[in-house]
């Protein structure tokens, strides 16, 4: 690489960083502005918006609602995704490619299409719009990600681990729970965090499948329509910090677990 291309590359890199972080920084900054209107100049600073958020029972209950959906979705997706991965696992059989493609399809279907399809389907089989429908919608979307991550991890497990467990007296179910599942732990943590974030962040499916109770993204959208207020910035900042911490923690613990095996 010549000196000039190196300089060019680093300029592009830093431009990207600026593009990524300036909007975030603006959003965070505005949350501390002591005025109802978003924009410069900022004359005085305040923490009042955060106080408002924390005392706003509607925001808190919606936050809890979104968390419940995210956790339920994650648990379901992990169970189904792992099952798919193990089922598709190392064995070759007829139609494997087709089953694999079908299992992965929900990950690439546009959100709006799958949201409408799920809405129609939910009505057809008499599922009320609401939490249960959203959880189902999110799970369908998340399973492929779990399956892919778990399959990748599974392919690195030496066959001899399972054989050793069988040799020492485990039937295939015991071998799975005592040897394979612990081996999959880093993949499950990573995929689980990813599911949580996907579910928590989702707007389209939650909007189409939800009932009267909004999820957090839907609530923020509703608030936006009634006028931009720094309260939204405060909510967003809290969510940003929480997800960043969760993401970094997941990354760290995955790396530690991977190193341990």
């Amino acid at each position: 690489m010549t000196r000039n291309t190196r300089i060019l590359m680093s300029v592009i890199y830093w431009a990207f960083i600026v593009y990524l972080f300036v909007p975030l920084a603006l959003m965070v900054t505005m949350g501390f502005k002591d005025s109802k209107f978003i924009g410069f100049p900022i004359r005085s600073w305040t923490l009042d918006w955060y106080a408002t958020v924390i005392q706003d029972t509607e925001v808190l209950s919606v936050f809890g609602y979104s968390m419940t959906i995210a956790i339920a979705t994650t648990i379901l997706s992990l169970i189904i995704g792992t099952w798919v991965a193990v089922f598709l696992g190392p064995n070759q059989f007829r139609g494997k490619a087709i089953i694999f493609a079908l299992a992965c399809l929900p990950a690439v279907i546009p959100g709006i299409i799958s949201a409408i399809a799920l809405r129609i389907f939910a009505r057809l089989i008499d599922i009320e719009p609401g939490m249960f429908a959203i959880i189902l919608g999110h799970t369908v979307h998340n399973v492929p990600f779990v399956a892919l991550v778990v399959m990748a991890r599974l392919s690195t497990q030496p066959k001899s681990h399972i054989e050793a467990a069988r040799d020492l007296g485990a039937d295939s179910i015991v071998a799975f729970f005592r040897v394979t599942l612990p081996y999959l732990k880093p993949a499950l943590i990573g995929a689980g965090i990813f599911c949580m974030l996907l579910s928590f962040d989702d707007f389209v499916r939650a909007f189409f499948l939800g009932g009267y109770q909004p999820t957090l993204p839907v609530l923020i959208f509703a608030k936006l329509r009634s006028g931009m207020s720094p309260e939204i910035n405060a909510i967003s900042t809290i969510v940003l910090i929480m997800t960043a911490i969760l993401g970094l923690w997941a990354e760290r613990s995955m790396r530690r677990l991977n190193k341990g095996s």
Partner: peptide, 19 residues
């Protein structure tokens, strides 16, 4: 099957359970 036999094995890669 292997789990029913009174035979045990030392594997080439040892196959120790890492966790």
């Amino acid at each position: 099957p292997p789990n029913r036999r009174d035979v045990n094995m030392v594997f080439q890669d040892y196959a120790l359970f890492p966790h």
